[in-house]
Amino acid sequence: MSERQASAGGPVRYEVDTALARITLDRPAASNAIDLPTAESFAAAVARAAADETVRAVLLTGAGRRFCAGGDLAAMAAAADRGAYVHALASTLDLGLRALADLPKPVVAAVQGAAAGAGLAAVLSADVAVAGRSAKFAAAYTAVGLTPDCGFSRLLPRAVGQPRALHLTLTRRSLSAAEALEWGLVAEVVDDDELTARAEALAAELAAGPVRALGEAKRLLRGSWHQSPQEVAEDEARTIAALVTGPEASERIDAFLSGSPWSPAPRATASRDCARSRAR
């Protein structure tokens, strides 16, 4: 059974094409709002991507017109015990998003329509986000009398700074795609009809790259927030020393020095010329 068939019919689709896993929030009629079954399915999909050694990159998308409207308010309101339900929902989705951020593989998010609340937390949990030009971004929590969840309180200030994070969270402001790019919420903005192709191309490019180096670089950057400068430096030194003897680095360094077509040969030549000049 193919991955597409195996994941058909649920609130989250999981598909693998060669080395690229696609995780799609698949509740378009509900603007991909996340209820507890969706959070559980999402966490399971991320776990599958982590366990599959053939997967080298992940593309996170939302079906339909909107990426993700955040938590499903209708499901919250219908719960017999609203507090217990929301606690389970926030905790489950947080586990899935942290697992996404911790994946030792690059993650690209393609954002169309709107990303609000937990949907914005999902964007911030990806490594590279590409937005369609008409996309909108909002915190949305306080507008319905709620507070951030799913790591939003940690992720947003680190992406945009504390003053902007407070402004976006405490007011009902939404950001355009261009503003999200200026603020640092997304890495690229493209025309809406180019979003899928650009995000897929970027994810495929990363999947074809040195996956161990990409995963370790991601880990170093994300982990640096929790470490002292000395701990960061020591972790960096251990990691680069371990990678330099591995096949990914050995092949690429040899190709770089030999001037292979994919490597920046002129820069390598210039570096060697400078080294000769210093030697003289």
Rank of each mutant, 00 (worst) to 15 (best):
G96V: 07
E40R: 12
A49R: 04
H226V: 07
S277V: 07
V189S: 04
P229A: 13
A109M: 12
D52A: 13
G209W: 00
A44N: 11
L73S: 09
V189L: 10
D35V: 02
A77S: 14
V86G: 02
Y85Q: 14
V144P: 06
G215D: 08
D35C: 08
S224K: 09
V12D: 03
D254A: 15
I34H: 01
P163E: 14
V86F: 11
E179F: 05
E231K: 11
A233F: 10
F67S: 03
L36Y: 01
A101T: 10
L36Q: 08
L97A: 08
A47M: 04
F256Q: 09
K218F: 01
M1N: 14
T24K: 05
A30I: 01
L175Y: 09
H167W: 06
R82Q: 15
I253G: 04
M1I: 14
L206W: 04
A115D: 09
V189K: 02
T147L: 11
A208T: 02
I23S: 01
A201R: 15
G9Q: 00
R13M: 00
C68M: 06
S7C: 00
A140Q: 01
V144H: 07
A109K: 10
G9R: 02
E188P: 01
E53A: 15
E231C: 11
A69Y: 09
D192V: 13
L95V: 12
R173N: 06
S228L: 05
G151R: 04
A237Y: 01
L20I: 13
E194Y: 05
I23L: 07
G151C: 03
A255R: 14
E179I: 01
A249W: 09
R27M: 01
F67G: 09
F67R: 10
A47T: 12
G10N: 10
C274E: 14
D254R: 15
G161S: 05
A39P: 02
K136P: 00
H226G: 05
R278Q: 08
R198K: 14
A19C: 07
S134C: 04
D273L: 14
H87T: 15
K136E: 07
V111K: 11
A126M: 06
V55T: 12
